[in-house]
Design a protein around this nucleic acid. Structure first.
Length: 464
RNA sequence: GGUACUCUGGCAGAACGGUUAUGCGUGGGCCUGCAAAGCCUAUACAAGGGGGUUCGACUCCCUCGGGUACCUCCA
């Protein structure tokens, strides 16, 4: 699989001959997660699901930043502790992302659980005279890392001439950044240099090192993390170990809304809770995967609606596959095999989920067409079904389960409707269909049989 | 101001130095008791602007311009 690497600005081959180690920068837990977070995490969720489906072992680490000025500010505003805030929003995170059918990471390390590791890491940096103690904290000396700026393609002198860098007397160089901040307000920990808390970037260096070692396969996050977060992580980690940090840097584009970045400071946020309530997990996932991961994607009702149409087709396909009874096989192995290959090929080529989805929908269209023509045979359906389910699994799409009782009741109602239709009592027959509709069961009348499908309830569909 | 990315039809989004991309949408028709599902057909005079290279450019080169992000916390 080839992936675009931000550092080398070229496509690199991912080595899948052994365990693949991935570190994803997760969220700072001080508020609700929004669709922008969802996109990054869903992209990585599908990436790991695809690789796992290929039989590749994955170690997937995703951190929670649970010590940070924003958390502390929020705690003060709500008259509580940082721990209460971060615990609350970690719980909130899992509600949202479980709702989006995101598979759990191998480990979700938290900064506050790794203070010891962070302190050891800082100690190494001080020993190597790359970090220094000043009156406000311990700082990383950017000038000690010759390649500083290599990820974000920034030049040190250009950064220095930028007017937006804070001037801090305690720093030797304005670009130096804190690895440890002295403080006497909670949360704080003892350190050999003074009480305080870790800087923002150090946790990821320390925790990725702890769980994945000095060198691992993919380090990812949103594009907005390239600078300064990932740049600083590289500086810290590579100065500390003297080795290459991540092999591939994978960055996911922003979700925009009316062309503008979705962010808390602008206030144009669509929270996951809100969108999940209105559109459900499957449509959100399709939406997040509908563009290339590296490019921005614009949030719009129109795009969501398009994905709703497609999701309905997928649902029809599923129910056609499980209800089929025809003996009229078309020997579709080759067709299915080709579509399956297209799907994989798209993902292998810099993880092009849009093209992979095209293949997925091609399979669906083909199936639905044959089914409507009563030409979907049992054997073909088996072949299609296993491929369809494979794709569903990789994409993380889920068709709601039904109980046997429900199924029996539906079959019984359909039988009654058939009788009435044969007797041309259409008003009565339609009443049954209406009743089923109320249960979100939709009927598809084929020439020789009627099948049913259970539609996922999508609130937005009924609004105008 | 600097750096990176980006600019294809109403929207989404490909390939390719020369062929209709495709999907969604929209119009019309077929199927159906009626719907839904499905089918057929039509529709988009598509390539940010201007130069160049070429027999021929959306595709290569130059140039101008627009957009987004980052340069401060941010997925």
């Amino acid at each position: 699989m080839k992936l675009q690497d931000t550092l080398s600005n070229s496509q690199l081959e991912l080595d899948i001959s052994k365990k693949v180690k991935i570190y994803l920068c997760g969220v700072t837990v001080y508020d609700e997660s929004h669709i922008g977070h969802a996109r990054t995490i869903i992209v990585f969720d599908v990436l790991r699901k695809y690789l796992e489906e290929k039989g590749v072992e994955i170690e997937f680490i995703q951190n929670f930043t649970d010590v940070d000025d924003k958390i502390i500010n929020r705690a003060q505003a709500e008259n509580t502790t940082a721990e209460v805030i971060s615990t609350k929003y970690i719980q909130n995170y899992f509600e949202d992302f479980d709702g989006l059918n995101v598979k759990h990471a191998t480990i979700y390390p938290k900064a506050t659980d790794h203070i010891e590791d962070i302190l050891k890491f800082i100690e190494k940096l001080i020993d190597k005279q790359i970090a220094y103690v000043s009156k406000n904290g311990v700082y990383f000396s950017v000038s000690k890392f010759p390649n500083y700026g290599k990820l974000s393609k920034k030049k040190i002198d250009e950064l220095e001439s930028g007017a937006r860098i804070e001037i801090d007397e305690a720093k030797k160089d304005p670009l130096d950044f804190a690895v440890w901040k002295f403080s006497d307000v909670e949360p704080l920990w003892e350190s050999p240099w003074g009480k305080g808390r870790p800087g923002w970037h150090i946790e990821c260096s320390a925790m990725s090192n702890k769980y994945l070692g000095e060198n691992f396969d993919i380090h990812g996050g949103g594009r907005d993390l390239i600078f300064p977060h990932h740049e600083n992580e590289i500086a810290q980690s590579e100065s500390c170990t003297g080795l290459q940090f991540a092999k591939i840097w994978m960055h996911v584009g922003m979700v925009t809304i009316n062309g503008e970045k979705m962010s808390k400071s602008i206030g144009n946020i669509k929270s996951i809770k809100n969108v999940l309530e209105n559109w459900g997990p499957n449509i959100i996932r399709l939406f997040c995967l509908s563009g290339h991961y590296s490019k921005p994607i614009d949030y719009s009702e129109e795009l969501l609606k398009e994905n709703l149409t497609k999701w309905r087709q997928a649902e029809v396909c599923y129910y056609e596959l499980i209800h089929t009874k025809s003996e009229d096989n078309q020997n579709l192995e080759e067709t299915v095999f080709k579509i399956s290959k297209d799907f994989d090929k798209a993902l292998e080529d810099d993880f092009n989920t849009h093209l992979a989805l095209s293949a997925f929908f091609q399979l669906i269209k083909e199936t639905n067409r044959l089914a409507a023509e009563e030409k979907l045979g049992n054997e073909d359906a088996q072949i299609i079904k296993s491929e369809f389910l494979r794709m569903l699994k990789i994409l993380g799409l889920v068709i709601p389960e039904m109980t046997e009782n429900e199924k029996q009741e539906i079959d019984y109602m359909i039988e009654n409707r058939e009788k009435l239709r044969k007797e041309k009592q259409f008003l009565e027959a339609d009443k049954i269909r209406d009743k089923l509709n109320e249960m979100n069961i939709e009927l598809i009348d084929h020439k020789v049989k009627t099948i049913w499908m259970k539609k996922e309830i999508i609130k937005s569909e009924n609004k105008k």
